[in-house]
């Protein structure tokens, strides 16, 4: 007989997994998900990249940063309000599992979508354009950690007490574009004016891009360890507002 907390931990992990699998089955084909999750990163990539002369590897690094960022952050803002509207979110809230388990499950859904799209972009880059990967393990940990962190960011918007995904899409899209344009994704950090670079350090995407540069091109501006640490810490911090907002929603009656 296992002691209480071990059993509980095992239960919670299993429940998080059940939520993840269910969400993947239920939501992956929704128009909102395809539009904001799958099309957007490629759209962004091509509209800002085709004009410039750019090597395949550099393109892959940029595309990976974009896919992790956009796909991961797209799921949260859209799945939870939709489930609130359909009433199915109550099922998860009433179930015998902790709020943290539920939120980690939801964050993992966005992250897994993003990892899926990233693998696809990577295959295209490697197979079709012959890009080579300098540090595969850095790539794996960067994609995984970046996806989780950005998914948690999306979860902040998903936790806004509303039953209308449209209410959340707007602010979350604005923030994502803001973070994208101040980041070092389209203009390399080295080419930025000092003031712009200082601003770029505020965007987690900057670190994801730097990390991808290390992983694919084998060179970056910051230390890859710093990049990983920033993504990890920001991911953990992004989980805090959703917890508060869920408590708030429970008072408001959403």
């Amino acid at each position: 007989m296992k002691n209480g907390w071990q059993q509980r931990l095992q239960d919670e992990l299993a429940q998080a997994w059940v939520v993840i699998v269910k969400d993947m089955k239920v939501h992956y084909l929704r128009p909102g998900m395809i539009m904001f999750g799958f099309m957007m990163p490629f759209f962004m990539f091509f509209s800002f990249s085709v004009r410039r002369e750019m090597g395949a590897a550099q393109g892959v690094a940029r595309l990976l940063a974009l896919t992790t960022f956009f796909t991961a952050a797209a799921a949260g803002p859209f799945i939870i309000p939709l489930e609130r509207r359909l009433g199915t979110y109550d099922r998860l809230l009433a179930a015998p599992m902790s709020l943290l388990t539920l939120l980690l499950g939801k964050a993992a859904v966005g992250a897994l979508f993003a990892i899926g799209v990233s693998v696809f972009s990577l295959l295209v880059g490697v197979v079709a354009f012959g890009a080579t990967i300098a540090q595969p393990w850095l790539l794996v940990s960067g994609v995984v950690l970046g996806s989780f962190s950005f998914s948690a960011l999306g979860l902040i918007f998903g936790s806004i007490p509303t039953r209308n995904p449209g209410d959340v899409q707007m602010p979350s899209t604005l923030l994502r574009w803001g973070l994208l344009f101040i980041s070092g994704t389209f203009i390399p950090l080295t080419e930025m004016a000092p003031a712009a670079r200082a601003v770029a350090y505020l965007s987690p995407l900057t670190y994801a891009q730097d990390l991808m540069n290390h992983a694919v091109l084998g060179m970056g501006l910051l230390s890859p360890w710093l990049d990983l640490l920033v993504l990890l810490v920001s991911g953990i911090l992004f989980m805090v507002p959703p917890v508060w907002m869920h408590r708030w929603a429970r008072q408001l009656g959403y």
Binding site: K25, V26, D90
Partner: peptide
């Protein structure tokens, strides 16, 4: 818990 609206997953 059986809520007011049948909250089943229609995609499943």
């Amino acid at each position: 818990l059986v809520p007011e609206e049948s909250n089943v997953y229609t995609e499943l």
